[in-house]
Design a protein around this nucleic acid. Structure first.
Lengths: 209, 209
DNA sequence: CTTTGCATTAACAAAATTGTTAAATAAAAT
DNA sequence: ATTTTATTTAACAATTTTGTTAATGCAAAG
């Protein structure tokens, strides 16, 4: 009878509680006792399964690092499509991925900002794959410029703009909610509008005029 | 002879060291002993002048809260100028203020994200002044739209776009440096380009087409 | 010059937080 | 059934971090 119910192991519960705690408070602000309490276990259990706070943190980072790469990849769009569609779809897909993981950006940006050395492996790996995609995308953009389809653009600059527009609303949300309550009150609706706005901004940026 | 040299009191040195520590590590990650060491005093001195870590933190927040408001105000531009110039100047002035205080955005956004209740006073105050300016600016934008000068826009949406574009590069810098070393290596030059890019994006967004 | 008040230090205390261990319990394998 | 292995608990230990205090030094005011 316990076979059906007890699908989630305590080990799993701890990891999930840790994720929430680390995402909201960061490594320094997280408390292992709070994590244990949230998971509904004694804090000795936490150490039994993960030994140290550091190792538990590493597990959380590992579990989510792939999503960052996935988001970046998605942002590059589908190479088969024409550049304009490709960019539009890239922005959209990237935005949707953040909606699915809204706490990730603030967490990673802040932890990397506070302890950059810790993340050299992650950022190096990210940089390698990104730069390949950048040169490929730049070639395609240049070709489109030659054909008179779009303005001449630096795709890396465009990429930064896209990241800024897509990520920032999620970082500023707690603050924004207090300032623009009416606009940001209905989160679903706000995000929908925001996504459209971001696409509009980038489309207008590359539009030939 | 000590009159000329000892211009900076230890109290001041502690506050400055605290600022750096809190800005880089956040409240939770900051260590009062590290602050004292950086200031070149014993950690008892820190408690002598500021009693607790919390109070020291509050002093740092107080000292910098005004800058946030100042930046927001600057972003609204000069009401005397026509709307297009007003927006252009607003973005530029806002960007320059962040250049002068590059660690502020990440600090405040993260602390507010982690402990929102703590900042209700600050955000309420910010919200009050901002909303007045928003309605005033929206009226002006609507008038310009009537005259066929610009597209119809929601100035609050435009404001979020502007904040995103101006602030995000400073938050992502530690990560970006590792990924786009060539582009972001020369910080001065990168920021100059980035500022121009942000203005271009917003100008194109409002341009009648 | 001496008294008063502020600045400074060193040593100590308290609390919070992480981590350990040995014993108890439950589950699984033989 | 019994042995073995994994899980769980409670109590404890170590460390880190914040905060206090009492004694000392020092500079300015009277």
């Amino acid at each position: 009878m316990t076979q059906e119910q007890e699908k989630v192991s305590k080990e799993q519960l701890i990891l999930e509680a840790a994720e929430y705690e680390f995402f909201t408070k960061g490594f320094a602000g997280a408390r292992t006792t709070t994590i244990a309490k949230r998971a509904g276990v004694t804090h000795a259990m936490l150490h039994y399964y993960y030994r140290t706070k550091e190792q538990l943190f590493e597990r959380v980072v590992e579990k989510n690092a792939a999503t960052i790469g996935q988001a970046m990849l998605a942002a590059m769009g589908n190479p088969a499509k024409p550049i304009i569609e490709r960019l539009r779809d890239g922005i959209s897909a990237h935005f949707d991925l953040i909606v699915a993981h809204p706490m990730l950006p603030r967490f990673f940006l802040n932890e990397i900002g506070a302890y950059p050395e810790r993340y050299n492996l992650l950022t190096d790996h990210l940089g390698a794959t990104a730069n390949k995609l950048f040169t490929e995308l730049q070639d395609e953009a240049d070709a489109a410029t030659e054909r008179g389809e779009i303005e001449q653009v630096d795709v890396r600059m465009l990429f930064i703009s896209m990241l800024s527009l897509n990520i920032f609303p999620f970082i500023v949300y707690p603050l924004g909610q207090n300032i623009m309550t009416d606009m940001m009150g209905d989160k679903e609706h706000f995000l929908e509008r925001r996504k459209a706005e971001n696409i509009e901004l980038i489309m207008r940026r590359i539009k030939k005029q």
